[in-house]
Computed example of a mutant assay.
Amino acid sequence: MSRPRLRHIAFVVQDAKEMADFYTSKFGMSLFHTDPDGSHFVTDGYINLALIQQRLDGDVPTGFNHFGFQVESVEPFLETLEPKPALRGGDRPFAEYRAIDPEGNWFDLSAHGFLPPGAGEL
């Protein structure tokens, strides 16, 4: 099996559009997805940066939220990680499972990667 690769970092931000504009204009990243809630997703072609729009009625503070590994297959991790990774629900095109490390940090596991299906490398 190939080594898992870090391919995704997520931050909760106060203004996702402004942040996406910053990273696309200053660092040449490409915007590849915008969620209905206003979250923006940009990439350098290798790392996906999720800029999650903070909700005024939510209790999640701004700042680092989670990271994600692209893996060849999720199944071996389902057998070895404790607590067991949880299947992410809904129509998320980016990550299949959410897990937690010993210090309580969230991370995602994805066999198909962190770009939308059909996007290829941007």
Rank of each mutant, 00 (worst) to 15 (best):
P117M: 09
Q53M: 04
H40E: 15
A111I: 05
H33N: 08
F32R: 10
F77Q: 02
S2Q: 13
H8A: 04
L49F: 14
S25F: 01
R88N: 09
F77P: 06
D101T: 01
F22S: 05
F22H: 11
L81F: 12
R7I: 05
R88Y: 10
P36Y: 07
P116A: 13
G63Q: 05
D59P: 02
G120T: 08
V71K: 01
K84C: 07
M29E: 06
F107Y: 12
P61C: 06
A95S: 15
G58P: 01
F11A: 07
F41I: 08
Y46N: 15
F67V: 07
F107D: 00
V60S: 07
G120H: 11
F107L: 09
R98S: 15
R98A: 15
K84E: 13
G113A: 08
F27E: 04
F67C: 08
Y97A: 03
P93G: 12
L109G: 00
T62D: 07
S30H: 11
G118W: 09
R3A: 14
F77E: 04
I47W: 05
F11N: 03
G68S: 07
A16P: 03
A86F: 10
V12L: 02
I9M: 11
D15G: 02
E75N: 10
L51A: 01
P83C: 07
A10S: 12
Y46I: 14
V42S: 02
P117R: 11
G58T: 06
R3N: 12
G63Y: 04
A86L: 15
R55A: 13
S25K: 10
N65Q: 07
A111P: 11
G38D: 01
H66S: 09
G68F: 01
R55W: 10
A16K: 01
F107V: 05
A111H: 09
M1S: 13
G58Q: 04
Q53A: 03
M1I: 12
H112N: 15
K26F: 11
D35S: 14
R92D: 15
Q54E: 13
P116L: 10
Y23A: 08
Y23N: 06
F32Q: 08
H66G: 03
L6G: 06
E75R: 13
V74P: 01
T62M: 09
I100R: 14
L51C: 04
L115T: 13
H112F: 13
P36A: 14
A99K: 00
V71E: 01
R88Q: 12
E18M: 08
V71L: 07
K17L: 07
L56F: 06
F64P: 00
P102D: 06
V12K: 00
L122D: 14
E121P: 10
A86H: 12
R7Y: 05
L87K: 15
A16R: 03
I9F: 07
G38H: 04
P61I: 09
R55T: 10
K17I: 03
Q54A: 15
K26G: 04
D59Q: 12
Y46T: 15
E72K: 09
Q54G: 09
I47L: 15
Q54P: 02
H66I: 06
H112K: 15
H112E: 14
V60I: 15
L6P: 08
D101Q: 02
F32E: 10
E75L: 10
R7D: 11
D59V: 12
A99D: 02
L109Q: 04
Q53R: 04
V74K: 00
A50P: 00
I100T: 15
A111F: 05
G63A: 05
